[in-house]
C-alpha cells in the first residue's frame, strides 16, 4: 500500500463556469512517506488542477485518490478533515494573509481544525521557527513584513496544521535568489523533521535535480513521464517535446559529448558535473 496513491484520475471541467481549470486525463502515480515528488509541466498542462484534487478541493470526475489506502471521498461530509492531513500551499500564498498579527494568522489553520489552546501555541512556535520567523514578529501585522517574510508566514500557517503530506504550488515564484533559497530550505527541513511527504509543483529543473526523489511530468492533462530525476533527465528529447528541458548543467555535459567527450547522461547537479569533469581530466593526465 502506498502512502498517497492516485488512480486513473480524470477531471473534465464544466463549460458553464468562468473558472477555468485545466483538464486532467487518466493520471496514476504514487508517492511514499518521506519522499519529495516534483510535478513539472508547462502552463496549462493540468498540474495545478491535479494538486487541488489531492486535498479534496476539487472532486475528480473519475478515478480515486487513496491516502493510506482510504479513498479520500469515501466520507464526503468529512472532506475538510483530509485538508488537515494533506496541506496545500498555493502560488503566492502571501495573498491569503488576513489576521491582525503574525501569530493569529499562523494560528488560523490549527484553530479551524479544533486544536487545543496549548497545541495551537506549540505548533505556531514550531512552524514559525521552521520558516525562520522569530518571536519578535508575532505581534506585528503581517502586512508590515517584506515580500519574502510574508510568504514564509503564509507557509508557516499551513505547516502549523501539521500535515503529513504537504503540497507546494510553485513556492518560489516571484522571489529573489535569497528568498528562493529560504523557501527550498524550509521544504527540506520540514520533510526531515516530520518525515513528511512533499509534493512540489515547479518550473525549475535545477530545483528538481537538487531536491526531488521522484518526478511526474505532465503534458496536456496527461502523465507524460514518471521516474527519478536521473531517469527523467536522461531523456532530453522527450522533455523537449513537452516544452521542458534538462537542467542547465546537464545541457553543458550533453554539449561536451557532442564535442567528442563521453560523459554519462545522468549528471544533473553542479557537484556531480565538477567531479565527473575532474575525473575525466585526471584520467586524461594519467594516460
Amino acid at each position: 500500500m502506498s502512502f498517497l496513491e492516485v488512480k486513473n484520475l480524470t477531471y473534465t471541467y464544466s463549460k458553464n463556469t468562468p473558472f477555468f481549470n485545466d483538464a486532467v486525463e487518466d493520471v496514476s502515480f504514487s508517492v511514499e512517506k518521506g519522499e519529495i515528488l516534483a510535478i513539472v509541466g508547462h502552463t496549462g498542462s493540468g498540474k495545478s488542477t491535479l494538486v487541488q484534487h489531492l486535498n479534496g478541493l476539487i472532486k475528480p470526475t473519475k478515478g480515486e485518490i487513496l491516502f493510506c489506502g482510504q479513498n479520500i471521498w469515501n466520507n464526503e461530509k468529512n472532506i475538510s478533515s483530509i485538508r488537515s492531513k494533506i496541506g496545500l500551499v498555493f502560488q503566492y500564498p502571501e495573498y491569503q494573509l488576513f489576521e491582525e498579527t503574525v501569530f493569529k494568522d499562523i494560528a488560523f489553520g490549527p484553530k479551524n481544525l479544533g486544536f487545543s489552546e496549548q497545541e495551537i501555541n506549540e505548533s505556531v512556535l514550531n512552524s514559525a521557527k521552521l520558516v525562520g520567523i522569530s518571536q519578535e514578529y508575532f505581534n506585528k501585522s503581517p502586512f508590515d513584513l517584506s515580500g519574502g517574510e510574508k510568504r514564509r508566514v503564509a507557509i508557516a500557517g499551513v505547516l502549523a496544521m501539521k500535515p503529513q503530506v504537504i503540497i507546494f504550488d510553485e513556492p518560489t515564484a516571484g522571489l529573489d535568489p535569497i528568498g528562493r533559497n529560504n523557501i527550498l530550505n524550509i521544504i527540506k527541513n520540514y520533510k526531515k523533521e516530520h518525515n513528511a511527504t512533499v509534493i512540489m509543483v515547479t518550473h525549475s529543473m535545477e530545483d528538481v535535480a537538487l531536491l526531488a526523489d521522484k518526478v511526474l511530468v505532465m503534458n496536456n492533462g496527461k502523465k507524460a513521464m514518471f521516474g527519478t530525476p536521473k531517469e527523467i533527465f536522461s531523456d532530453r528529447n522527450k522533455l523537449l517535446s513537452v516544452g521542458l528541458d534538462v537542467p542547465l548543467i546537464t545541457n553543458v555535459l550533453l554539449k561536451l559529448n557532442e564535442l567528442g567527450f563521453n560523459f554519462e547522461s545522468n549528471i544533473i547537479t553542479v557537484d556531480e558535473a565538477v567531479n565527473a569533469i575532474i575525473n575525466c581530466k585526471g584520467g586524461a593526465d594519467n594516460a
Binding site: 478541493l57 496545500l88 495573498y95 489553520g109 484553530k111 479551524n112 500557517g157
Partner: peptide
Amino acid sequence: VEETQKIMNAQKARGVN
C-alpha cells in the same frame, strides 16, 4: 472574480468550511 476563487481555495486549504 478569479482572485476571489483563489483566495477561497487557499482558505479552504487552511480548514475554513
